[in-house]
């Protein structure tokens, strides 16, 4: 069995976001970039299925600039067997990402695609669902548990109101939620080993997918600030303020 795991290079979750003053976007120069945290969870899940002997090959794929090679090496260090960099400079919209992934699925024929439920930069949360729709494969979004049973996969999903369990026949698409697993920190030997694992580079254009964005980002601005608050010294002062100043209780 084969798994494809898409991974995205994003601004590290612990780095403070700086919006460019001219409204043209977020300043990423010289800032720490990392694998999207949800994608780390996806790589971890695939690695565990491989370690359990259920899966033979885990292929990581990233669509992005040359530096996304680092993200792919990180996935290889966590346990992916090989990697594909689809080179694309500039932003690639979720629909184009889904189309590129569809083309790769058609050539690589995985049984399962596991990917993050959203990337923490654009917060769009679209690609897994789009890929599933384009392929005509069933989908399980927001997975917090994945159990493989032959050609059937049972997924517990984090939904509004609790947890939902569904089953899908393979091939299928899964998107990961935070509580699916705790991704490992790759050991030094596996980081070294990852440097020798195969990493193929292809040009996005060769897949015949149009990359020009279809949505126009007219501006990117900081959110409106809140007016500064005040400290209260005691519980009774808090109650007084809530009753008589804010009038919310």
């Amino acid at each position: 069995m084969k798994i494809l795991v898409p991974v995205k290079r994003v601004l590290d979750a612990n780095v403070a976001v700086r919006v460019k003053p001219d409204g043209t976007g977020v300043d990423l120069t010289n800032l720490r970039m990392s694998m999207n945290p949800f994608d780390e969870i996806a790589v971890e899940e695939a690695a565990r299925l491989k370690e359990a002997g259920i899966v033979q090959t885990v292929t990581a794929v990233s669509i992005g600039p040359a530096q996304a090679t680092d993200t792919l090496r990180a996935a290889l260090a966590m346990g992916a067997d090989d990697a594909i960099l689809v080179k694309a400079d500039g932003p690639v919209e979720p629909l184009a990402v889904a189309k590129i992934l569809k083309a790769l699925v058609e050539t690589h024929q995985p049984d399962l695609v596991i990917m993050g439920k959203q990337a923490i930069d654009g917060d769009s949360g679209q690609v897994a669902q789009m890929l599933s729709a384009l392929l005509g494969w069933p989908q399980a979004t927001f997975a917090s548990k994945v159990e493989m049973n032959g050609s059937i996969v049972r997924v517990t999903r984090e939904v509004d109101g609790g947890l939902e369990t569904i089953e899908m026949d393979l091939p299928a698409v899964i998107s990961t939620d935070l509580r699916l697993n705790n991704p490992r920190r790759a050991s030094l030997p596996s980081v070294m080993q990852a440097k020798k694992k195969p990493l193929e580079e292809i040009d996005a254009a060769s897949l015949g997918v149009a990359l020009e964005p279809t949505l126009r980002i007219a501006s990117t601005l900081p959110p409106p600030g809140r007016k500064p608050g005040s400290r209260v010294e005691s519980v009774s002062e808090l109650i007084d303020k809530l009753k008589n100043e804010a009038r919310v209780i």
């Binding site: 601004l11 403070a16 976001v17 919006v19 977020v26 923490i120 930069d121 654009g122 917060d123 949505l215 126009r216 980002i217 007219a218 501006s219 990117t220 601005l221 900081p222 959110p223």
Partner: peptide, 10 residues
């Protein structure tokens, strides 16, 4: 976007 650290006009 970015956990609400920026607001895009699309």
């Amino acid at each position: 976007v970015y956990a609400g650290a920026a607001i895009e006009t699309v």
